[in-house]
Amino acid sequence: MPDVDVAELVRLRAHHPVAVAEAAARRPRRPLLGEGGRLMIVAADHPARGALGAGERGLAMANRADLLARLCLALSRPGVDGVLAAADVLDDLLLLGALDHKVVLGSMNRGGLQGARFELDDRFTGHRPEDIQRLGFDAGKLLLRIDYEDPGSLTTLESAARAVDAMAARRLPVFVEPFISRRGADGQLRNDLSADAVTRSLAIASGLGGSSAYTWLKVPVTDDPDDMARVMETTTLPAVLLGGDVAGSAKEQAGAYENWRRALRLPTVRGLVVGRSLLYPADGDVAAAVDTAVGLL
């Protein structure tokens, strides 16, 4: 794991805050898609929504130096195209020089805090379209959870549509991550990964805003992976697979990888966006986990 000089990051932030903008301005960029037409993105936008757990570790992502070291290692592996994160993490990675020649996705709505009563009123508290443009980032990402019984979902739906409009006006791609969600008897919010629910969520997300020209979809694998081919017939928008937090035995992890491999053969699926499964694998070997995911592409 590479060393991260936290003291130097703090010194720069305290004495020379414009260093973030300077690093963004001199960052060498690349096209969103390379010659192979595939994307391998490492996700680390969870902390900004108060979601710090990975596997059985409830605060795994709370140690920022450790998270940054894992991200730097992941980004250094061959075949990794870029990263998805909120502003604070991306600012750190800019200062560390870890984003050169990488695809950078800014996380846009982080207001739906994990476990909050207002979780579905997921307001845009992260990157704005103008921030993504100003910093020279390559795309944005928004989360769209829809509960038919929660009025907060309508607020998020309308805000998401306006964000799609604003990104399209700037010719910037936006990755929309849709779910049909429900609260259980315990009050906990859960995403419905049945084929019908995922199909419905993709149809809704595809129609957001006045233009879908710059819209991508970030799609979970359904409960029954055999349904993915039928589900992905819902849209012609390019999509990436959401990796999620794959915990459990090595056999269960291998099963998740196989499900990703099968879904990646579908014509609309262009890559993977995976976070905690790669950054906090059960065996602790970040490089091996990343290399395995890259191999699926």
Rank of each mutant, 00 (worst) to 15 (best):
Q133Y: 13
L135G: 04
F124D: 01
L142Y: 03
H127N: 02
L142A: 15
E119Q: 15
Q114M: 14
T125I: 05
D138K: 11
H127M: 10
D131L: 04
Q133V: 15
D122N: 14
F118L: 14
L120G: 09
L135P: 04
L143G: 00
I146S: 10
A116L: 07
R134K: 12
G112L: 05
L142V: 11
F124M: 04
L135N: 00
L135V: 05
L113D: 04
R110W: 03
R128L: 11
N109H: 05
I146T: 12
G136Y: 02
L143M: 10
D122V: 01
L113P: 03
R117I: 13
G140E: 03
G126F: 01
R117F: 14
D131V: 02
G111K: 03
D121R: 15
A139Q: 10
D122E: 06
I132H: 12
R145C: 10
I132E: 07
L135K: 04
L143T: 13
L144G: 11
N109I: 06
R145D: 06
I146L: 15
R123D: 02
D131A: 02
N109R: 03
E130D: 14
R110T: 13
D138A: 02
R145S: 13
A139M: 12
L144T: 02
F118G: 15
G115E: 08
A139H: 12
R128D: 02
G126A: 07
L113Q: 06
Q114L: 14
G112I: 00
G126K: 02
G136K: 06
L113G: 06
F118V: 15
F124E: 06
R117H: 14
E130A: 07
H127A: 03
A139C: 10
T125V: 08
I146K: 07
A116D: 12
K141R: 13
L142D: 00
E119F: 03
E130C: 08
N109V: 02
R145F: 09
D122K: 07
L142M: 15
Q114N: 14
R123F: 10
A139F: 10
F137C: 05
G115V: 01
G140A: 00
